[in-house]
Nucleic acid binder design. Sequence first.
RNA 1: GGGCGUAUAGCUCAGUUGGUUAGAGCGCUCGCUUCACACGCGAGAGGUCACUGGUUCGAGUCCAGUUAUGCCCA
Length: 881
Amino acid sequence: MSDTTDSPRPEPAQVEAEVFARWEEAGVFRAREDVEGAESFSVAIPPPNVTGALHMGHALNGSIQDALVRLNRMRGKNVRWTVGTDHAGIATQTKVEQALVAEGTSREELGREAFVARTQEWRQQYGGTIIGQFRRLGCSADYEHERFTMDEGYAQAVLKVFVDLYEQGLIYRDTYLVNWDPGSRSAISDLEVEDREETDTLFQIAYPLKDADASADGVTELVVATVRPETMLGDVAVAVHPEDERFKHLIGRTVLLPFVGRELPVIGDDYVKTDFGTGCLKITPAHDPNDFEIGHRHGLEQLNVIGEDGRITGGYAPQFEGMTTAEAREAIVAALREQGALRAEEPYTHTVPFSQRSGQRIEPLISLQWFMRMDELAQPAIDAVKDGRVRIHPESQQRRYIAWLEEIRPWVLSRQLWWGHQIPVWYRGDETYCGVEPPEGEGWERDPDVLDTWFSSGLWPFATLGWPEGTPELRAFYPTSVLSTARDILFLWVARMVMLGLRFADDVPFRDVYCHSVIQAPDGRRMSKSLGTGIDPLALMDGGPRPAVFAKKKGADAGEFPAYGADAVRFGLLAMSSTQDVRFSEEKIAQGKQLVTKLGNAVRFAAGRLGDADQAVAAAGVSGADLPTRLEDRWIVSRTERIARETAARIDEYDFAKAALGLYDFVYGELCDWYLELVKGREAATDADLSRTLAWALRRTLQIAHPVIPFATEEAWASIPGTSGLLAASLLPAPDDGLLDPEAEERLARVIDAITTVRSWRNGANVPPGPILPARLEADGYDDEATTLIARLARLQPTDEAGDAVPVAIPGGQVAILAGEHVDPAAERARVEKRRAEVEGQIASTEKRLGNEQFVSRAPAEVVAAERAKVEALREELRTL
RNA sequence: GGGCGUAUAGCUCAGUUGGUUAGAGCGCUCGCUUCACACGCGAGAGGUCACUGGUUCGAGUCCAGUUAUGCCCA
């Protein structure tokens, strides 16, 4: 593609901002207040992280939701698209803490109250970024109802849900081995953990056997294998496989823990793999999930030796106390080496859990946390999907949803943060109080923890509509119509919303769930900021750096994206999203830009023509009861009606790629390449059918393209006769079967075929495209109207003149192009011979198929008939050659 | 280790319930200053449908297996 930056065209950023302002001034995006009666269509955006900036997934999801929302608004539905952000506990707190450190202070120094105030301030200042970016994309959300998961009313809803679930016994406090994230100094949920391959060292450590002399077998020690020697201070046993011939006789004996001298029983457990390491496993229930399980089975104690600060604690070995885990590992290994207890060190590659929040390695810790029991909530959420009250698209994602819910585990709700919904529980001595309002009396201390951000996000579809108040909004817009989301939050969010919606709002939170594509980088993996494979959608819309991996030629300087504009980005993203995993394709974005330009030019052409026409006539339009008479008019009317229906149906079916690409094909391949060319011989000033058909076709095209490319279509709208007000607020006409005209479609298809064939012949025969050639049309099925169209676009002069001519086969016969300056029948002979050989070959192969007894008797009659017809047509062509 | 997906033109993707000669956009080639548009118009070249076997008159499409690759869960 050539560079666009030096073109005189206005920047999309400016044009699109003006159009957006018109929509907002007119209040097009506002849900109507007179909610009674009107069918509603409501969407709750998956709330993005308040600290975030728009990434490709957001941009795709925004394009999808807006296409759905705009289509349904044009259907006359009362549309409510709720946007907003979640408070992103860890992410936001981290941001603000970083700022504090830069200022030479800390949250501890500030104190909780001041810190929360400071964070609120931060959010006021920077939290609007991503919503502004959705506006830039053209998203027609109801911004006046923007919500935040820590709004006052929302916070009340969160507390009420917590208190209710607590009173119902679903929320409880317990000790558990949690995923401790030393980076954010908080427990995080299983879903926030990601496993990565790491190469560590596997150490072998000798634990001396107690009473070694007492046994006759000569065994004096057991050697355990571990990658985390620093946890050994918390060891409570050594396990071997109960069938292991080497060790099974030692079960029941005791070994002594180095440094500490603790007596550890040797136990048998078939979790131990005999072929891994030494076959002896040290058991540290407080710091390893598997050991935790084994410890449970054998009734072992849990000894905490790593504190929440990631330092050695517990006082079992004073020389290591207070060291970080890394320091302790080094010191312990050194000490063991000195004692001669270190028997081997070898590199070992394994998967290690990391925090998605802070990027730090997870430290499994025993701690007291708030939990939510999920089993009781899961079943109704499974049923809702199984019986179709919630439909998940594509269907494959439904199985993932059900599978996850069937194996659901308790949810760790508490986070050791200050930014978030503080748990509404107070303690006084042995007393515990849980309530939306603080307890009466003196001496109560509130639980310092806050709730997992997803707990509050789970209430989003109804809490944004004013729940627990029975507001008119809630009645009008709950359940929401559809949730469009990235599939990686199917569990984090979707499943939890279904559970909480059913429990608290008496119905499913949405009727449909659409899991959109993941747009991948050229390496076939999801775009990643840290790998430099992410694209900023703003850079695509308004110009900006193109990441190196997206260089158009490998190794070349990647340069900058041209300013494609929001329409092009929307089109491109939708056109890309055909399957669940797709590669990013800048060509699709460019295609969107081309469509926008092409449509703009078509409108310019049409508006110019229609300027001469009687405006009332042009505005009148067409209907099934009042069709134009000419072939090309009836054809475009029929084709436009079809594409309008198809596009809407494809959006309804969440087939956005086909909707977008189908629009492109229609605008290029039918409207512009054919209809506008076919009518160039006519005058709108004197041709009422032309002016009303042309204006109608353009109006309908702008309407059906609007959900995909809203800005360009809105800009063009006013220049077509018969429009009033804003396109975004216009209503789609009801489907009209009378507009469909299969006969006109078929007749014009033959005209197109004939024109293309003649053009192709010219090209192959080295006949220049310009000159008008005299020709005899010797074919059935072309009336005067069709003949005129063919003659004009194929640049032929129909004649009855006899004489030497070159035959060009078209459906139903041939065009005989008379010999002349550009046409030499003699030179054409070779070409005709080549074609004759081709046709003969095809006849032979088709006849062979028809000669096959099995084919004729077993294939369906219509297939056989089609083959026979094909032979006939080929024989016909052969005769003309 | 288990589950799910993907593999079709140089690139990104279509390809209905199996049925003519497997399509599109971009890129490439050739031609065109055709009065809306060179971000254009017209015409082309380009494919062992990952591999192996099977079912069938007929397989890109259905079945089994293999390979590559991605995602999710453990």
